[in-house]
Design a protein around this nucleic acid. Structure first.
Length: 559
RNA sequence: GCGCCUGUAGCUCAGUUGGAUAGAGCAUCUGCCUUCUAAGCAGGUUGUCGGGGGUUCGAGUCUCUCCAGGCGCACCA
């Protein structure tokens, strides 16, 4: 447990004890202690920490909150809490002021933990799988995938920091209808490139990248497939194109800083019989019925709006059937929690997916689906309809070329997944030099620069307790306070599955550092103070690097 | 029509399971580089938290209703 959490935990338990001992002495009346919070008040004048305990007790105790607060303070044990003063304020808040010296312990804590500072043991080693992007291999990665990649990857890193054993997974949709469609599109392009008058299939994939793929193929094998039987020809074309597309997707994601542990093929579920056996299982449990020649899952039993087809009347299983087998497979691999990052356009699938898991006997609560709102592309002030079929979209590759990996990842992780993002490419380009990410990176570069100069002057040296007590300016204390907050922030962000909190956090931390930097010198004459500040600098630098690391953003030594 | 998400400063967005006087960036205005990186700092300006009711000591946050936008409601994925 971190220093700060330790203090807060202690104060909370002392507050509870105060209420109980007041009760024993008949000074307060209550059945059960209601939920209360200990938090940092927005206004600095209200002290370091404040609690609403007296307010929430008022109803049961049938006394005025201020009255209760006074009683609580009388019984409050302050040992080991750094509490220096307590007062009643407002409607009945208890404001606590801590002895600022508690903050000096933070630097040591950070430097000792190093790149592990911020770790909490919330997950207790539980196995979590995060599946994200899982884009169809029929095209290139686009803006929506970019958001999913930034969110999913940072979420995975965040959970690892929070004590979970995390596995990143990409589900390859290499089976089913869209692959048939893909094959027909490829075949048409192939024939067209060789001068044949082949019609393009209705609803085919119009993307330019498909033509590029076919051209590349022709340069290798020429027209030898013109004379091959169409079924075999399409099979070959698909295999070739899928391989190329997946390699491209993988490389693009790696360049975006995303590295998967597992690439899972949908086709493998059909080949291994997993899809069939999942369906049989559901059938045995009587959750399947036949209607109009198709097999339906009774997903309405589990809160879905309508039952869903799992096997079409032509005998082929639906995508949903494969997805059931896939998620069943995930749980069978022993994950305690399974998290999917999906685009909001898939939200209709959530209920049925969870329903299917319940039907198979798994605890659907262990499947969490994060719905991320879509990214809308704005050009010339107008919304551009993006679609893979029409080939109208900006690719992740283009995004990285235009605004850079760091800016793109930070941009997406600055936003709540629930917010619809309007991405104006021109604006993104124009703003790339004053993008918030540079603000944070600049702080890191400044910190690095100070340390470089300190090295030239001699060793930084380890500070003594006495040295650290010299960090008393309000800028230093605000900075230390923020630093102490990181473990709590990690825990909150992990609990809520919201990595964007960390982007906000590191932005705040950078701001506090810039303020400090502009008001006080680090490399001062006084050796003790210099040692103390240099170690403050080392610690801040460490934290910025740690958090940027979670966000997949680089922390430059120089800018 | 039904379901989910969103609506907060001119623009883009935060707002920690109900807390005290709602915040940041961009934009704009005024200052700060012979001292550790000015991609920075300090200060000024900016609000019917979409509208209306309800719950309570207290609501941007919970509830109901209406309005606006997005997404979904296939034997597509």
């Amino acid at each position: 447990m971190s220093l700060y959490e330790d203090i807060k935990t202690k104060i909370i338990s002392h507050l509870e004890q105060a209420a109980n001992s007041a009760k024993e002495k008949g000074e307060l009346n209550f059945e059960e202690l209601p939920n209360f919070v200990l938090e940092e008040p927005r206004e600095r004048q209200h002290g370091d920490l404040a609690t609403n305990l007296a307010l929430v007790m008022a109803k049961q105790a049938k006394r005025s909150p201020r009255d209760i607060a006074a009683t609580l303070i009388q019984h409050l044990d302050k040992t080991d809490t750094w509490i220096e003063a307590s007062e009643i304020a407002g409607a009945g808040f208890i404001n606590l002021r801590l002895n600022p010296l508690w903050l000096t312990g933070v630097i040591k804590e950070v430097l000792q933990a190093g790149d592990r500072y911020g770790q909490v043991d919330m997950g207790k080693g539980q196995k979590v799988q995060v599946e994200f992007v899982s884009a169809n291999p029929t095209g290139l990665l686009h803006m929506g995938n970019a958001r999913g990649a930034a969110l999913g990857d940072s979420l995975a890193s965040l959970l690892a920091m929070a004590g979970y054993e995390v596995s990143r997974e990409f589900y390859i949709n290499d089976a089913g209808n869209q692959i048939q469609n893909f094959a027909l599109s490829l075949e048409a392009r192939y024939l067209q490139q060789l001068g044949q008058d082949a019609p393009f299939p209705e609803g085919g994939y119009h993307g330019e990248d498909l033509i590029t793929t076919v051209k590349g193929l022709i340069s290798k094998v020429g027209d030898k497939y013109l004379s091959v039987e169409p079924g075999l020809r399409r099979e070959f074309l698909v295999r070739y194109a899928l391989d190329e597309k997946m390699r491209n997707i993988r490389e693009t994601l790696e360049d975006f800083g995303v590295n998967y542990d597992v690439w899972f093929s949908e086709q493998s579920l059909h080949d291994s019989g997993a899809v069939r056996s999942a369906l049989e299982d559901l059938q045995k449990k009587d959750y399947i019925y036949e209607k109009e020649g198709a097999l339906w899952l009774k997903s309405t039993l589990f809160g879905d709006e309508k039952d869903e087809v799992v096997v079409r009347s032509n005998g082929t299983p639906t995508y949903f059937a494969a997805d059931i087998a896939y998620h069943s497979n995930k749980f069978d691999r022993g994950f305690d929690k399974v998290i999917n990052v999906w685009g909001a356009d898939h939200h209709g699938h959530v209920a049925r997916m969870k329903g299917a898991m319940s039907a198979l006997g798994y605890n659907a609560d262990n499947l969490t689906i994060i719905l991320m709102q879509l990214v809308r592309l704005i050009q010339d002030g107008e919304v551009v309809k993006m679609s893979k079929r029409s080939g109208q979209y900006i690719t992740l590759r283009e995004l990285m070329d235009e605004v850079g990996k760091d800016a793109a990842r930070f941009f997406f992780n600055l936003r709540d997944p629930d917010s619809t993002v309007d991405f104006d490419m021109d604006l993104a380009k124009a703003q790339s030099s004053d993008n918030p990410v540079y603000y944070v990176q600049y702080a890191h570069a400044r910190l690095s620069s100070i340390l470089r100069q300190a090295q030239e002057l001699g060793n930084v040296g380890n500070p003594s307790e006495e040295d650290l007590k010299l960090l008393t300016t309000s800028e230093e204390r605000d900075l230390l306070k923020k630093m102490a907050d990181l473990p709590t922030e990690i825990a909150t962000a992990a609990r809520l599955l919201e990595p964007h909190r960390l982007a906000r956090y590191v932005l705040d931390l950078a701001a506090l550092f810039h303020t400090f930097y502009n008001s006080q010198r680090v490399l001062v004459e006084d050796e003790a103070l210099r040692r103390a500040r240099l170690n403050l600098v080392r610690a801040v630098k460490q934290i910025i690097a740690n958090v940027l690391g979670i966000l997949g953003v680089s922390a430059p030594e120089k800018m």
